[in-house]
């Protein structure tokens, strides 16, 4: 019997299995203009913001939208418009945990930290979606359209 279980156990599978994006970090004094140009040129959905070697914030395309909508001064230091204290995940956390943290506040990017608390990557929600699709068995797509009518027993 084909089950999803062996290939698709997101409660056990660690975040380390994901193909994550490299993380791009900027220091908190860098102007908004430079960060927007960087995100556009490198097609980044988010960058982390650091101060003296520590990650202190995250600036995402959602924040960029807000800055563009509100006509924020492009010379504003990125540290002033980034979201402070980003929610992170560790490599040993499960995919289920990452999904849960993302759904908590609608985040789509979680910095990935190593055992020393250093940011080593960026988990984009799309990375998780792609993992799910790669691990769906063929059966998911070729199921008969109506599943709920199979149990019909003859009367006694």
């Amino acid at each position: 019997m084909a089950s999803l279980l062996n290939t698709f156990n997101i409660s056990r599978e660690p975040v380390a299995r994901l193909a994550t994006s490299p993380v791009v970090s900027v220091t908190r004094g860098v102007p908004l203009r430079t960060v927007l140009e960087l995100m556009r040129d490198q097609k980044l959905g988010a960058v982390t913001v650091c101060d003296r070697g520590q990650t202190v914030g995250i600036f995402t395309e959602r924040d960029a939208l807000r800055c563009l909508a509100e006509a924020t001064d492009l010379e504003t230091p990125i540290g002033d418009v980034a979201s402070p204290g980003p929610v992170t995940v560790e490599k040993k956390d499960s995919l289920a945990e990452a999904i849960s943290r993302m759904s908590y506040r609608g985040y789509r990017h979680l910095p990935l930290v190593d055992d020393d608390g250093q940011v080593v990557g960026m988990v984009d929600a799309i990375n998780i979606i792609q993992w799910l699709v790669e691990h769906f068995p063929r059966a998911v797509y070729t199921l008969p359209p109506t599943p709920d009518v199979l149990i019909e027993r003859e009367g006694p």
Binding site: M1, A2, L5, P137, A139, L143, P144, P147, D148
Partner: peptide, 20 residues
């Protein structure tokens, strides 16, 4: 081929929901 070669038995609610 798009026909089902195996029986699919979801093992938990999440598997059932994603599939159906």
């Amino acid at each position: 081929p798009l026909t089902q070669e195996e029986t699919f038995v979801p093992q938990n609610e999440l598997e059932r929901s994603v599939a159906y």
